[in-house]
Simulated scan of single mutants.
Amino acid sequence: MIDAYGRTITYLRLSVTDRCNLRCTYCMPAAMRFQPRVDLLDWDELGAVADAFVALGVRRLRLTGGEPLVRKGFVEFVGRLSRHLVSGALNEITMTTNGTELERHAEALARNGIRRINVSLDSLNPTRFAQITRGGQIDRVIAGIDAALAAGIAVKLNTVVLRNDNLSEVVELAEWAHGRGASISFIEVMPLGDVEQSRIDQHVPMAAARDLLDQRWTLTPSAAQTGGPARYFTTDEGGTIGFITPLSENFCGGCNRVRVTATGQLCFCLGQDEGVDLRAMLRNHAPTEPLENAIAAVICRKPLGHDFRIAAQVTGAVNRHMSVTGG
């Protein structure tokens, strides 16, 4: 698949649920209204979508949510998709998780082909973590991270940097990650959906986080790539730090990915509302080949870049919440 700007699409982020057991302040409102379950793709439909994209040349598949591990049957779904790893059609299957359910699933995920995961971790302070996540328990996340590492899964922490919440923790978080043999990426907050807080108050340009880290280490640009948008650096001590800068330093020119939501909407860009309804095709019992043809026919609609803006407003620049789109 090649879009109108000559970018080859080799990376799919597939959401398996919009539901989450946390309510992070930058992601959703406290009283989030989730999609009716009947509107979510079932496991067969999600499998058909994954199969179609693999047939079209996707080489990396990231499973997202919401929180993927809260949906019953997720580990078995990973096992079903692992045949694409065995055949060589996929280079990897990865996932993004908040880590709260990871401890009891880590070994099974490793057995089913997961070799690398991203875990959201926005604070090491139990009180602050509970505030950001609206009730989350940091001990459960740490136990999940340790279980994943023990199972041989490489862990990258994802930290959304929030001006009044965790900016002061970026060095501590990086030291903690590196002490456990994990890498870490710091992310600018993105204006996705109404979260009942001002995005201006939340937003931190990544240069501010970088300044704090530069006081601790000399950061050297790294050639490392994981298929995502992060730019990576290494520290004097060999640790890896990434920066994801959708607002302050746009990375759209090299974008190689699309997303499919848990309701079957093909999103060409995280920062655009436009999408294509794949669920209708699936529920009309269309065979695999027409689904592949339909996807290939619309990939040219992928825009050059996003429309993210942090403005003096509460609502997001894009109506979908991150949990709906898939992180």
Rank of each mutant, 00 (worst) to 15 (best):
85 L>N: 02
87 S>L: 05
87 S>W: 06
89 A>P: 08
90 L>I: 08
90 L>K: 03
92 E>M: 12
92 E>R: 14
93 I>F: 02
93 I>R: 00
93 I>W: 01
97 T>I: 05
97 T>G: 02
99 G>F: 02
99 G>A: 05
100 T>W: 02
101 E>G: 07
102 L>N: 07
105 H>R: 13
106 A>E: 01
108 A>E: 08
108 A>V: 04
108 A>T: 02
109 L>Q: 01
109 L>R: 07
110 A>K: 06
111 R>Y: 05
113 G>Y: 08
118 N>D: 08
118 N>F: 02
121 L>W: 03
123 S>I: 01
125 N>D: 15
127 T>M: 13
127 T>Q: 15
128 R>F: 08
146 D>N: 13
147 A>N: 04
150 A>L: 10
152 G>H: 04
152 G>W: 06
153 I>K: 02
153 I>P: 00
155 V>C: 04
156 K>D: 00
156 K>Q: 06
157 L>Q: 00
158 N>G: 09
159 T>E: 14
160 V>F: 11
161 V>G: 03
164 N>S: 15
165 D>S: 14
166 N>D: 11
166 N>Y: 03
167 L>Q: 13
168 S>Q: 14
169 E>G: 10
170 V>Q: 09
171 V>Y: 06
175 E>T: 12
175 E>G: 04
176 W>K: 05
176 W>R: 06
178 H>D: 10
178 H>Y: 10
179 G>R: 11
181 G>T: 12
181 G>H: 13
183 S>A: 15
183 S>W: 01
186 F>M: 11
188 E>Q: 11
190 M>R: 04
192 L>Y: 02
192 L>P: 00
192 L>C: 06
194 D>R: 14
200 I>N: 11
202 Q>K: 12
203 H>K: 10
205 P>S: 09
206 M>A: 14
207 A>N: 13
209 A>H: 06
209 A>I: 10
210 R>S: 13
212 L>Y: 08
212 L>V: 12
